[in-house]
Amino acid sequence: MATHIKGSTRLYGLVGHRLAAAKSPQLLNPVFIDQGEDAVCIPFEVTPDGLCNFVIGARALNNLAGLLVTMPHKQSMLALVDELHPTARQVGAINVVRCESDGRWIGAVFDGLGCVLGMQQEGHEPAGKSVLLVGAGGAGRAIAFAVAGAGARSLTVCDADEQRARSLAESVAAETGCATRVGPPDPRGHHIVINATPLGMGAHDPLPVDPERLEPDMLVVDIINSPHSTPLCRAAREKGCSTQDGGHLHRGQARLVLRFLGLNQDADGEPGGLPPEHAQPDQAMTRAS
């Protein structure tokens, strides 16, 4: 694997704490080899109190082209980049940094747009649809803005923390103009139902919505990435619904991350709300505070 590394090789790093189980290097490096990219992805194990020092040192590396950012640094990295892609500003987190040749670091997060792209690639277009989103945490927040940006007709947000749901609904409505409200986890009357909670990861978890209220023409999306079908997806298919699990989100996100980093130039089209990469910085980016 390491035989393709040369003096000209561009470095991409995965930054996080407790990376023993991380899969990004073993996923990206074969892609680099297959596509003939002179690049390599390596893990950078960085504790929370070492992140600032890491960034100071990393900025001295002229061949560092980008970083994938994972827990616990997704929020902390916001203050350490130079510009924010609109996704990072909306969500309040970063999971990828592009290191420009002029020294600028640009941070973005593609969880939400990856979810939308995963739907679109299977012909499920959020535009004009009524969407129920259960879960207003980090992933839910990203998905809310992405779905609204893709032209959803309406968005209902549900979360165990009603204040968090209300804050998200108000932010999405103010920024996108989408008719967004807080409501119960009742799928009736919606075209798309999205579970952005951890419910389903545990063997005895309750379902995030009542499957008896699902209808056959609905799309049910569960962002849990499991090698097995999630309980929600199984229950939805029994009701005749179309379903998607977290794999669709992660594949969509990976495609967008590669494009953002300049490693997937042949990708065709972008999901709603993604600014074109050729836009001027003042159109597509905001300065990090």
Results as ranks from 00 to 15, higher is better:
62 N>L: 11
260 F>I: 09
282 D>M: 11
288 A>R: 00
227 P>E: 04
89 R>S: 14
9 T>G: 04
175 E>M: 09
84 L>K: 01
266 D>S: 14
206 P>F: 10
164 R>G: 13
46 V>S: 00
182 V>Y: 02
111 D>Y: 04
169 A>K: 04
2 A>T: 12
215 E>A: 15
129 K>T: 11
119 M>V: 05
11 L>Y: 11
242 S>P: 01
265 Q>F: 08
186 D>S: 03
115 C>R: 00
211 P>C: 12
27 L>Y: 01
190 H>E: 03
163 Q>R: 08
137 G>K: 05
284 A>C: 09
210 D>Y: 12
124 H>K: 11
13 G>N: 12
83 E>Q: 15
71 M>I: 12
94 I>F: 05
165 A>D: 01
81 V>N: 04
209 V>N: 10
236 A>D: 11
23 K>V: 15
89 R>C: 07
65 A>R: 01
46 V>F: 00
276 P>A: 15
208 P>S: 11
10 R>F: 06
4 H>E: 14
239 K>G: 06
168 L>H: 05
202 G>A: 14
67 L>Y: 00
59 R>L: 06
276 P>Y: 11
15 V>R: 00
183 G>P: 04
103 G>F: 01
74 K>Q: 08
165 A>C: 09
256 L>F: 12
269 G>R: 03
285 M>E: 12
9 T>N: 05
128 G>Q: 08
105 W>G: 01
154 S>V: 10
125 E>G: 02
248 H>P: 00
15 V>A: 07
271 P>Q: 07
7 G>I: 04
166 R>W: 10
138 G>N: 08
255 R>P: 00
194 I>D: 06
2 A>E: 12
86 P>A: 08
147 V>A: 11
1 M>S: 14
67 L>R: 00
247 G>V: 10
112 G>C: 03
167 S>L: 15
155 L>C: 04
82 D>E: 08
282 D>Q: 15
118 G>I: 06
149 G>I: 03
269 G>F: 08
56 I>L: 13
154 S>Q: 15
189 G>P: 06
213 R>A: 14
199 L>P: 03
130 S>Q: 15
1 M>L: 14
139 A>K: 03
135 G>V: 10
199 L>Y: 08
64 L>C: 00
15 V>S: 04
73 H>F: 03
46 V>K: 02
47 T>E: 13
90 Q>P: 06
222 D>P: 07
97 V>N: 05
289 S>C: 10
103 G>Y: 01
264 N>S: 12
239 K>F: 07
241 C>R: 02
45 E>P: 05
192 I>E: 00
289 S>V: 06
102 D>S: 09
155 L>M: 04
199 L>W: 13
149 G>E: 13
79 A>T: 09
48 P>E: 05
257 V>N: 06
212 E>M: 13
58 A>M: 10
113 L>K: 08
139 A>V: 15
86 P>C: 09
117 L>Q: 06
55 V>L: 03
287 R>V: 07
78 L>K: 02
22 A>Q: 13
195 N>G: 05
182 V>G: 08
3 T>G: 09
183 G>R: 09
91 V>A: 14
265 Q>N: 13
271 P>V: 04
58 A>E: 05
288 A>D: 02
1 M>N: 13
175 E>S: 10
82 D>T: 06
155 L>Y: 02
93 A>W: 06
73 H>G: 02
240 G>V: 08
211 P>M: 14
36 G>K: 11
26 Q>K: 13
269 G>E: 06
256 L>S: 04
21 A>G: 12
88 A>S: 14
